[in-house]
Amino acid sequence: MRRIALFALFVMATALPARADKDCQRMQVQVTALQGQIADMQRRSADSLTELQRLTALIAEQNALLQRALDDGRQQDEAILTSMRDLGDRVSRVIEQLDALRIAGNVAAPVAPGTALTETEGEGVIDPATGEVGAPVPAPRELYSQAYADFARGNYDLAIQGFTEYMTHYPDTDFTDNAQYWIGECLYGKKQYAEAVEAWNTLFRVYPSSDKLPDGRVKKGMALERLGRRSQALVEYRYVVDRYPTSPAARIARERLNP
């Protein structure tokens, strides 16, 4: 019995180191496996980084292309806008010339059947209050151009008078809103910035579809800045950037937002 116990002790004593060796080997395998995994992860990470860099470069390139396209679009928009305005001006001028010819009696205005025809004598304007014939009203283009010429040479009061007269006599032409815009410009030229702001407010209120709105908004912003009301000016600039993002006025508004 005692021998058996001694044998068992001997076996146990010899078996323990063998088991430790196995554990050690297992651990080594595991470490090797882990090292492999880490290397693999590092490799994949490097690959990912390269891919990330490639993608970043690609995005930057795409952004640049997009920006260029956007700029080109803006530039084209600006050129198209100028051309459209020019075309509109020319059409308006032709219509005005036709109107002037009709007034002169050279071209009969289309008349609805049954309409009573009235004769007009001379070119004077009859004052409804007195019934007297006053001074003749200049043709629309003449009146408008004269008012602008007065603006250009700094005769702002005369110019305001001319543009106001234009709006009174020709309240529904393609240039009526322009005349209101120019009144703002005249007041701005006179350094009467608060009055200029009001003139442009009138433009926005009375002619909400005027093509002068983007420019008028930016000019109003500039007048507000002159009055020391920059925070209100910023609102005007942001409005133009949001509402008319491709207009030339928006470019200037952006510059004003980030001086």
Partner: peptide, 19 residues
């Protein structure tokens, strides 16, 4: 901008461009 060289006017801040 509209083909042949022509004169344009703008305000001194770049606004209100007209042919």
């Amino acid at each position: 901008r509209t083909g042949t060289p022509q004169l344009y006017i703008m305000s001194n801040d770049g606004l209100n461009v007209r042919r």
